[in-house]
Design a protein around this nucleic acid. Structure first.
Lengths: 127, 127
DNA sequence: GAGCTGTTTAGATAAGTTTCTATTCAGGAG
DNA sequence: CTCCTGAATAGAAACTTATCTAAACAGCTC
């Protein structure tokens, strides 16, 4: 069991985001800001074993296979998922570090907007 | 000090999002998936007193006032901020409940994608 | 190798977004 | 009341995105 410390950006209400951080986070957010991609991400992440075959994903939507493939590519390009071909099928899995960047960004502040606490360390346990 | 319990949707990797939840969350995410709006949100949220005047926000960007006004409207329409006119100036503040929905969505799971824990309660302290 | 199934790429079209300029609305000062 | 400043609305132009059909690529089976 390894402990990973994430330290990308402070929560959104703690201090003003720099232009560069905002650009990086916006890229990540644009990738998830779509109902199809949100569902794909949650279907992949919650699938037993932590990975899902494209064939598990296409049937659920009223969309053609190329469209699903396009959305998967957007998620992969953003660094949110990773895909691997094993024989006939391609399997995708979530990259937790990318999701955690967003978790930190929107983490609730105990004290409201006073910005006087220390830096944020989100400890995440990898099995 | 009041304790508010947020229970919109499970974290993204816990269970597949419903079509309706995905649509609602995507609306919220589209609003924040822009570098300017991310910075506006963080500038408003981290401003002393928890609110910021539009006049505090326009000077920071190389954008015209109507463009900033447009971005603020997008954030307000999504329910992420609220604005109030007091005399000459208009003041905006963050609506924490909306931000917390995203915090829960991207909250890290201690156990990786096994989906066998109880429901998630994020406790947030309002002053 | 030939043919089949699963997945991705290419190219086109329709819809949505970001930004601007010009104008209008809201409130305070002379 | 008239003028001035802060903020929002309206409309237009440039750009990006979502989706499709058609075609290509990857690997299995016979």
């Amino acid at each position: 069991m390894t402990a990973v410390t994430i330290q990308c950006c402070a929560p959104i209400a703690r201090e003003p985001l720099s232009e560069a951080d905002a650009a990086e986070l916006a890229t990540l957010l644009k990738a998830v800001a779509d109902p199809v991609r949100l569902r794909l991400l949650s279907m992949i992440g919650s699938h037993p074993g932590g990975e899902a075959c494209v064939c598990d994903l296409t049937g659920v939507f009223d969309l053609t296979a190329p469209t699903i493939s396009h959305h998967l590519k957007v998620l992969r390009t953003a660094g949110l998922i990773d895909g691997e071909r094993r024989g006939t099928w391609v399997y995708y899995r979530i990259i937790p570090e990318a999701v955690n960047k967003l978790g930190v960004l929107f983490a609730p502040l105990a004290a409201p907007a006073k910005a006087q606490n220390g830096p944020v360390d989100v400890e995440l346990l990898n099995a």
